[in-house]
Simulated scan of single mutants.
Amino acid sequence: MAEDDSPASAPDLGTVLAEARRRLKAGGGGEAALDARLIVEHFSKTQRIDALRDPALSLDAQTVGHIEEAVRLRLAGMPVHRILGYREFYGLRLGLSPETLEPRPDTETLVEAVLPDLAGIAARKGACSILDLGTGTGAVALALLSALPQARARGVDLSAGAVRTATDNADRLGLDGRFTAIVSDWYGDVTGVYDAIVSNPPYITSREMGDLPVEVAGHDPHLALDGGADGLDAYRVIAAGAGTHLERDGIVGVEIGSRQKTDVIAAFAAHGLRLRSAARDLAGHDRALVFGF
């Protein structure tokens, strides 16, 4: 009998997904099923329904290779969204780069905290100007622009790479006509006054930096994490410059660490800014503060 020299059948979607899930679970990943699905869908250009409706869908060798490499990177500690190169935030798909913090759902708390005040300003003035300090991917500014058609925003970041990433994100989202970004050390090269100053600044203490998990410390830029000896350096700078760059009826909104509320309020009070509102994240932690003169 002649040997069967027919080519081996191509790997199918269901099998590849199950194997990715198995490897990630064996590696101790708490989100193994979700991470496997995100990786496989991204590189195979499929959707969740495809694995349910057509698990026998054949995948070519190049696609399988990309998936296997992505799983290897995930097992080595790279966050899944770093592997994919993007993160969803407030309904927007934002590209990531090594110079940007990966936006987290907690930061959506800041967006929601400032939106009512900004909507009121836009209604009164017919426009609203926003300064986003430490813009990173542009997450906060672009989310606000997507919700407020009357608004314009300027992003500021010390990293030129972050400024490029934020600008690219604005372009892809069709918001480039209302968003600009500059390289600046906080207010250093900023001109003009704004209706709102927003920021998700670095607020981890320098001592705590050494205790961060590898997924954060090894992939998020330390420039966007280290808030100095007490974690409050950035808040002092933001509060000190508000008098020069904030309209008198404007607001300042900042994200904070879960145990920093009292200290951040004091830092802003030292410059004449009073607390207008505070918001907690979905876990019930203090996460965003809004100030005004």
Rank of each mutant, 00 (worst) to 15 (best):
P11W: 01
P11E: 05
G14H: 09
E19T: 11
G27F: 08
A36Y: 07
V40E: 05
V40T: 08
H42Y: 09
H42W: 07
Q47R: 13
D54Y: 04
L59H: 06
T63D: 02
T63C: 08
A76W: 01
A76R: 10
R82C: 07
Y86H: 15
Y90W: 15
L94W: 12
L96H: 13
E99T: 13
T100S: 14
V111F: 12
V111S: 12
E112C: 11
L115V: 14
G120N: 14
G120S: 15
G126W: 13
L133H: 12
V140H: 09
V140N: 09
L145G: 15
L148D: 14
Q150Y: 12
V156E: 12
D157T: 13
A166E: 08
A170K: 06
L175Y: 03
T180W: 00
A181G: 01
Y187T: 00
G188C: 00
G188R: 09
G188M: 00
D189Y: 00
V190R: 02
G192V: 00
G192K: 00
S206I: 03
S206C: 05
M209T: 02
G210P: 01
G210N: 08
P221G: 05
P221K: 05
H222Y: 00
V237S: 05
A240C: 02
G243K: 06
G243S: 07
L246H: 08
L246N: 07
I265L: 10
A267R: 13
S277H: 12
L289E: 06
